[in-house]
Design a protein around this nucleic acid. Structure first.
Lengths: 345, 345
DNA sequence: GTGAAAGCGCTAACAC
DNA sequence: GTGTTAGCGCTTTCAC
């Protein structure tokens, strides 16, 4: 029909127009959408026909305003294009989708200031929950989130003094464990390749992993490993070059520990390019197990962290809170484990 | 002050409370936020102090309802944890962030029905624009988006009959080019490993690439390549196994074309595990250049597609539309190019 | 430069 | 089982 098509094309149908079309009140239309069982069958069918004819799309802004719940969950990660966090986002997305929630995604680029700015902007959207990465934030960010009155999960780390809840693992222990493993293999001169201390100052998960590595050396009554810093610890070429530099300038080095799997993979590639054999000339270990770690040859010995699971559980914890109203300061350790591959002997 | 802190903690400040605190009307507070130049300096400072004291966070739901623009852009991708689309998401996210827009992200899991469901739900949020993947959608999805009256970009493909705008590349040509290259190298018995026809039925970018490959063989007056299908064309082990099967059952095969880089990398690994040398025994080529393609040994000869750039341009095109009101049916070809690595000879 | 009134689209609370 | 009223928090419009 002309009228119907016209209305449909305008895409401007609201509850009242649908109600007029069906010859009922707006409230009845609302009920058909939200609690269909409370409407008589005949009425319901008439309304459903009108809904269809007008191509009605509910206005969730009005809904949010009135109901004081948006059905939106905010997530902020340092970077998206790194496979580590894309696994995490996938985990969050899947869990939210199942429950009918929508995902508002932000990228902090490892900047606490940007995180604060995003937090402020996102909270205006009245999300039902917020997921953010790490336990280090500006005071303003912490205040904003504490006062928002919604569940908040900090993921990828567990630590004292969380804003609300946490889903992650012990970053210190991850560093400690990989270093302990390497020391146990009997390497005599281990080098360490990591992001700069400047980077670690605002990415304290990395700082904790470094601390764990140093602690393992100390507990073994050994001096700390020779360290080489990488400006961009997520750039494979850059990382590889620095690792090769370190080995070239310290011929005695027989093994490298890398602060993450990008550095680890970069190191293996760069050492091989330089004519060295991994692990015979130099062994390499990393932390983190993105798919590349298992695909290169030899595979990288590393600490496997389940990013997807961290994301999934972070979302689930929020959803449970929303359902139960359980305000218990949940903290969940997802753990990690050692994966030994060919890059060490 | 007690009152201030109390109000702050409740996180419930609205324009009226701020106005009362500052001794002005709500309208003046709104002006301080949106058009500060229209407010007297003294008033403005008083209001700003009140804004701060109460920890005011604007309610964007009310804003959206009243202004009929949300500042939200929706993006839907088939999968997030694949590095291909995470690059794309990063590109979108960066472009939107710069412009002050927020990203509502959805994952269709390669299902047109899920895409339709998501579209309906997302449109309720009254986004200012929508980005979706591919040119194949249900009629309902197309209708919903056409009638929404907002800019829509279909990315990762260019084709006739777009809903609104498109940013992508010619998938047929990508297939045609890699096949032509391989034929030009003189391989005599080329195998083809791809997703199932069933998969291609709802992922027509893959179908187009296949069609391009077959067209190249036909143009070379050759019979089509022996084809092996993979149930899950994004699972490396699964893909590798099928590729190895194909080669094992057709000893004459001297080269493989793979429908994507996951299959390509999986094939190289699996063939090597089976004791074959790539490219000496069997050469391998793919389509798509996620980082793994360049990290394995030998590197995968493939078609490089710039996912990040596709995402960035898709977002920018939407933003330009929003600024200029330019309704021109923009279509942008991002292109691609051949990257020759060690997996072919 | 500032304020008052109206209304965006929806639903909670209360009629009937 | 259905309708009426009011109001969520904001901004547009029009006064002054």
């Amino acid at each position: 029909m002309a009228t119907e098509k016209g209305d449909f094309l305008k895409g401007k149908a609201n509850l009242i127009k649908v109600a007029e079309h069906a010859g009922v009140s707006a409230m009845t239309v609302s009920r058909v959408i939200n609690q269909p069982s409370k409407v008589a069958d005949a009425t319901r069918q008439r309304v459903e026909a009108a809904l269809d004819a007008l191509g009605y799309v509910p206005n969730l802004a009005a809904n949010t305003l009135r109901r004081k719940r948006s059905g939106v969950i905010v997530a902020m990660v340092p970077t998206i294009d790194n496979s580590v966090f894309s696994d995490t986002i996938q985990g969050i997305s899947d869990a939210l989708e199942t429950a009918g929630y929508q995902l508002l995604l932000g990228c902090t680029s490892y900047s606490l200031e940007k995180e604060e700015k995003l937090t402020r902007a996102f909270l205006g959207r009245r999300p039902d929950g917020v997921i953010l990465t790490g336990s280090l934030h500006t005071d303003v960010t912490r205040n904003l989130l504490s006062n928002a009155g919604i569940p908040v999960v900090e993921m990828w780390d567990i630590a004292e003094g969380h804003i609300d809840m946490a889903v992650g693992f012990d970053n210190f222990q991850a560093g400690y464990d990989i270093a302990t493993y390497m020391l146990g293999r009997g390497y005599k001169n281990i080098g360490y390749v990591a992001g700069t201390e400047d980077h670690e100052a605002h990415e304290n998960r990395a700082a904790k992993r470094s601390a764990g590595i140093y602690a393992a050396f100390e507990d073994a009554c050994l001096p700390p490993p020779v360290r080489k810093n990488v400006d961009d610890p997520l750039n494979i070429e850059c990382c590889g070059a620095k690792a090769a530099d370190l080995v070239a300038s310290h011929k005695e080095i027989d093994a490298l520990i890398c602060a993450n799997e990008i550095i680890g993979v970069g190191a293996i590639k760069a050492l091989q390019l330089g004519g060295l054999v991994v692990p015979d000339d130099v062994s390499v270990a990393g932390i983190g197990d993105a798919s590349i770690a298992g695909l290169i040859h030899p595979g990288l010995t590393t600490i496997r962290i389940l990013g997807n699971r961290i994301g999934q559980r972070s979302a689930e914890v929020i959803l449970e809170c929303l359902k139960d109203g359980s305000a218990a300061k949940h903290q969940e350790d997802i753990g990690f484990h050692l994966v030994v591959r060919g890059s060490t002997k």
